[in-house]
Design a protein around this nucleic acid. Structure first.
Lengths: 344, 344
DNA sequence: TATTGGCACTCTTCTCCTACGAGTGATAAA
DNA sequence: TTTATCACTCGTAGGAGAAGAGTGCCAATA
């Protein structure tokens, strides 16, 4: 399994096999490799090597007398050691830049564009996730009375994100109370991250001088504001393309994927889990994914920065994906996105 | 084609044929009808009648020596004249009520739940669309300076909806200017519908006394606020179920559907187009749909009220759908949704 | 000793063929 | 007007066989 244990030839053949398989989606035979990549060795030799690779668990045969296909472990070696990033064409770069051009509507619109562009250029699923609010610095909080009993809370973050939430109030509220409460909240909370606020809200607001009935809305343990507001949003593009990948000819596979896609929280976790720990491109292959629904898929993701927080974008597709290309794509898109967000 | 031209027997057989076909998804033969529905007539008689129905264009044969399947026109007759709504079970009613129970996060969360519930109970696609802002009454507008050059505009509507939009400002803005501008905007605009505001914004704000550089953001012809804010949002549920409907075994069909689903604006138009004109349940069958991508699908939709505006919910599936059940479902859900929204 | 050509073997896939069955339309009898 | 019957059509399921791809192994080779 260790990369060092592989001979030069084994590496080369694993590489050829994978890059051929990614294109063809059919098991790759020794002859195919010998013909396509002029390695100067005969099919028979390649066969021997392929047997070795199979013993190491890097490739497998769907059935006797078929060619080989890579295993998850094989892809892993490929991605970690053999992969060379494929540079993007000028057209592709342009498409990304155009797609992310600052439009109206703020962060959400841009992210929707991003997932669209990623999907279009990759023919796989493009995913984008809003920055994590937990690390976002609150820059202002505003209270708006919409009617008796309905109070709109607006939270504006330094990263350019804004969230609104509607609260129910039992008692009537005077204009004065509202203004006062707003002042208190801004004094005590602005400049802090949402995560920080969530943890320390109790101590910060007790005895702060706000009106008790309003105060309760913000302090209560199960206050909707702090508990539900942190969740990120997600955009998906390319569903209409991914269904043509041969691995999704089986409806059960497709079902798993679809289920995953519409189960927002799970997917967000899936992508954020990883991106947090590392700052570069993260590639998760097949069974490495926690969620069993997509263990026949791989995820290529990267984080982008927005203000002092980060969000995540990525591409999801079958493990048989052009990793080199997709890495460049995601990397470039993440960088562009960070730039655009800074401009915001 | 006219309903009156049909004999009693023809109506009956059309009805039997459709309700059988909806279940089986297979062409229905004369024997099947004779066996399943004890009509007291022989298969031969039924065959004769089916020939008549075919001449009228209400049913068709996929090929010689297959049973019949309904045409769009057949479904139309069925829906308009023969359909009896299937009452919901208590469990179903409970599921809807539970699903729509007021949760945190306001309108969007509820609508997401709604689409989920509709999908779960129908095994088709559940769609929900936010109320049209154009008819929504603005109850307050708030300006928040997020940093130099970034201005957050918050619009709160009486229906409980809120929208934020981020604007770029060239020049520095003083606190005073901002407050003044906020006052002017609220004075001049609150109490009006967004649509009204859009049309009359020029006259209303010219010479209103606000700071010119701020004023420009709101008056300019291509101001992002009024142009881009009106668009509704949409939620979809049930994608993982619909792919098992036999009509989507063909990947091309599935692709068309998926394309449609992710093309938000088109879909919103599709559903809203109709719901506006009529206040009850709207059913659009197959080729009656404008968008050619879903001309093998039917749409059952209804509008709900929120404040003084309306939004739309609906179900999309193959034309072979249990119209009676889905009508009841959508109707009940829309009514519940209106109730919940009123409570908001 | 590593590589290669050759060969027998395996397994899938494609095609052709047939038999079957479902369903019809027409006709003649009830 | 309805029904029983029968010949006919056409899609589908199943099986046989051929083709093809690819392997593993072995003996020859450089």
């Amino acid at each position: 399994m260790a990369f060092e244990a592989l001979t030069e030839r084994e590496k080369k053949i694993l590489g050829c096999l994978i890059s051929h398989y990614v294109r063809s989606a059919d098991p790759v035979g020794s002859r195919a490799i010998a013909n396509k990549f002029r390695l100067g060795i005969s099919p028979a030799t390649i066969r021997n090597t392929m047997q070795d690779l199979e013993e190491m668990g890097l490739v497998q045969q769907p059935h006797t007398s078929a060619g080989r296909i890579p295993t998850d472990a094989g892809y892993r070696i490929f991605v970690d050691y053999l992969l060379r990033q494929e540079p993007l064409t000028d057209a592709e770069k342009a498409a990304i830049k155009d797609g992310l051009r600052v439009g109206a509507g703020g962060v959400d619109t841009i992210l929707e564009q991003t997932s669209r562009v990623l999907a279009d250029l990759s023919d796989h699923l493009g995913i984008s996730i809003t920055p994590q609010l937990d690390d976002s610095v609150l820059c202002r909080i505003e209270l708006i009375q919409m009617s008796e009993g309905k109070l709109l809370v607006v939270l504006a973050f330094r990263s350019g994100l804004a969230r609104t939430i509607l609260l129910e109030v039992d008692a009537a509220i005077s204009r004065l109370e509202l203004e006062q409460m707003g002042q208190v909240l801004n004094e005590k909370l602005s400049g802090l991250t949402l995560g920080h606020i969530r943890k320390t809200i109790q101590e910060r607001l007790v005895d702060s001088g706000g009106s008790p009935k309003l105060l309760r809305l913000f302090i209560d343990d199960d206050s909707d504001i702090w508990n539900n507001l942190g969740s990120s949003r997600m955009h998906i593009g390319g569903t209409e393309k991914i269904i043509f990948q041969p691995e999704f000819a089986d409806r059960e596979n497709l079902k798993d994927l679809m289920k995953m896609l519409h189960q927002e929280s799970g997917l967000i976790q899936l992508l954020q889990d990883k991106s947090n720990k590392n700052s570069g491109i993260i590639i998760t292959i097949g069974a490495e994914n926690r969620a069993k629904e997509i263990q026949s898929c791989s995820v290529v993701s990267a984080s982008y920065s927005a203000g002092n927080t980060t969000g995540t974008i990525g591409i999801i597709g079958p493990t048989r994906m052009p990793y080199g290309k997709l890495m460049s794509l995601v990397k470039y898109a993440a960088r562009q996105l960070s730039k655009v967000m800074k401009g915001k």
